[in-house]
């Protein structure tokens, strides 16, 4: 007997799956000597390119582009690191205690120690464990990523009602998805939303980590990454 066909996904979740950006690669510079400067240079360069992609992706979230430009900027300035961290965490789910910064940049604890990335590694792993336990699916990941953006608690929002409408539509999409795909667990949407505080904590630690690296001035950083770091 074939398994029962899965119910169709909600429009928003299907749309978010379609607009999910392509993988990007870290491409560490082979001419640089191995060590913490190389590792951090690779990550900062990767983050800068990911940011360009995240800004383009945000414009495809239904309702985001109708916000004022100022509100779009405020949401992205607050949430960009949460979006970056959530993407890294989702990529790392199939691994055991390794962080997949990119397909070609998978770091285990020992490599993290050598490369000066141990603090970041230790900060991200609890989030990976949390989503592993929940067995987070791709549909849930893309929806939660959009929710993290809409729910970024920026202090500078002009049109609070419009941002609230965006939050409501994404929240509803998550609830509808869980209602149709996971009727056996009526609290699944809530469980996913309850991971957002740990995501914010982790992103805050990551921002602090990169901000202190910026202050030390030893690692080259591209302009967009610097601009977003300074906005925090």
């Amino acid at each position: 007997i074939p398994p029962p066909a899965k119910k169709p996904l909600t429009k928003i979740v299907s749309h978010l799956l379609v607009v999910e950006p392509e993988k990007i690669y870290a491409m560490p510079d082979p001419t640089m000597p191995d060590g913490d400067i190389k590792a951090l240079t690779t990550l900062c360069d990767l983050a800068d390119r990911e940011l360009v992609v995240i800004i383009g992706w945000a414009k495809h979230i239904p309702g985001f582009s109708t916000l004022s430009l100022a509100d779009q900027m405020s949401l992205l300035q607050s949430a960009w690191m949460e979006i970056l961290v959530l993407s890294i965490v989702f990529r790392s789910l199939p691994c055991e205690d390794e962080i997949v910064y990119a397909e070609d940049y998978v770091i285990d604890e020992e490599q993290a120690r050598i490369s000066g990335l141990l603090d970041l590694h230790v900060a991200i792993l609890p989030l990976v464990r949390r989503y592993k336990k929940l067995r987070m699916e791709k549909e849930e990941f893309v929806t939660l990523k959009a929710i993290a953006l809409a729910n970024s608690d920026s202090m500078h929002i002009e049109n609070i009602e419009a941002v609230q409408r965006l939050q409501d539509s994404l929240h509803e999409a998550l609830q509808d998805f869980e209602g149709s795909q996971h009727p056996e667990d009526p609290r699944r949407a809530g469980k996913l939303l309850m991971t957002l505080p740990l995501l914010r904590q982790t992103a805050t630690k990551a921002v602090q980590h990169f901000y202190s690296i910026k202050m030390q001035g030893k690692v080259p950083m591209h302009k967009l990454f610097l601009e977003m770091l300074e906005a925090k």
């Binding site: 992609v53 414009k59 601009e227």
Partner: peptide, 20 residues
Amino acid sequence: KEKHKILHQLLQNSTSPVDL
């Protein structure tokens, strides 16, 4: 806004992430 020039430009630019 002047301080956040690149973000501002990228949001105004109509290029989709799929093209990037």
